[in-house]
């Protein structure tokens, strides 16, 4: 498991630069956080193209509305909060047709291409779906903490993303991991976790 990419100080500097309209700062934030934000959204949505679109939306929102300046700036926490809100909203409403229409209108193509092995893909998809069902039984905050932590996000960034104290992250995480394990076994009696 990896940890956060950025220190609070460099986040603060980047946010100040964003407020000044610094294009290079925006590009730097994108380079730094794109992989983790994409990973969080892929875990939430399970769909690479949807995760890619939502990741773009996260950064567009940052561009349109930079994180407010202040002494407690947490850029990463802001990005992960927006990402998880967007991801869960997308999963809830599943506006797939609308998204396809929008994509058609933008005449854009997903960046992820390739020809996966259909059988392996089906098996992986089925396994992921079972985990996702178990996750859906958990409160949204617990789900978010789990996914962020297992995407490599630090405790401080998780705390900023879901609005709890850093010292409470371990408590929520422990409860969520226990609940996920229990819900998965309840939904899939006899199934192993490995």
């Amino acid at each position: 498991m990896t940890v956060s990419h950025a220190t609070a100080a460099s986040d603060g500097t980047l946010v100040q630069a964003l407020h000044a309209g610094d294009e290079e700062a925006f590009a730097e934030v994108f380079r730094r956080y794109y992989p983790t934000v994409y990973g969080v959204l892929l875990r939430i949505t399970g769909a690479p193209d949807e995760a890619e679109d939502l990741t773009q939306e996260v950064f567009l929102r940052l561009y349109q509305r930079p994180v407010p300046l202040g002494t407690d700036v947490n850029l990463a926490g802001w990005l992960y909060r927006v990402a998880s809100n967007l991801g869960f909203n997308a999963v809830r409403s599943r506006r797939r047709l609308r998204d396809r229409v929008l994509r058609w209108a933008r005449l854009e193509r997903p960046l992820v291409t390739g020809a996966p092995n259909p059988a392996a893909e089906a098996e992986r998809s089925d396994a992921a779906a079972r985990v996702r069902q178990a996750l859906a039984d958990l409160p949204e905050r617990d789900r978010t903490v789990l996914i962020l932590r297992h995407s490599g996000v630090s405790y401080a960034e998780i705390a900023a993303a879901v609005g709890i104290r850093t010292s409470s992250v371990g408590t929520v995480l422990a409860r969520a991991e226990r609940a996920l394990r229990a819900r998965y076994l309840a939904r899939n009696p006899g199934a192993g976790e490995e």
């Binding site: 498991m1 992989p35 994409y38 990973g39 892929l42 875990r43 399970g46 690479p48 890619e52 960046l111 992820v112 390739g114 996966p116 992986r124 396994a127 992921a128 985990v131 996702r132 178990a134 789990l146 996914i147 297992h150 995480l173 422990a174 969520a176 991991e177 226990r178 996920l180 394990r181 998965y184 976790e193 490995e194």
Partner: peptide
């Protein structure tokens, strides 16, 4: 619990290269 959760959540992670 943490290891079990990690194993389950790994199934949601990227199998294709990140864009």
């Amino acid at each position: 619990d943490a290891e079990a959760a990690e194993s389950l959540l790994a199934r949601l992670g990227p199998v294709e290269p990140i864009p």
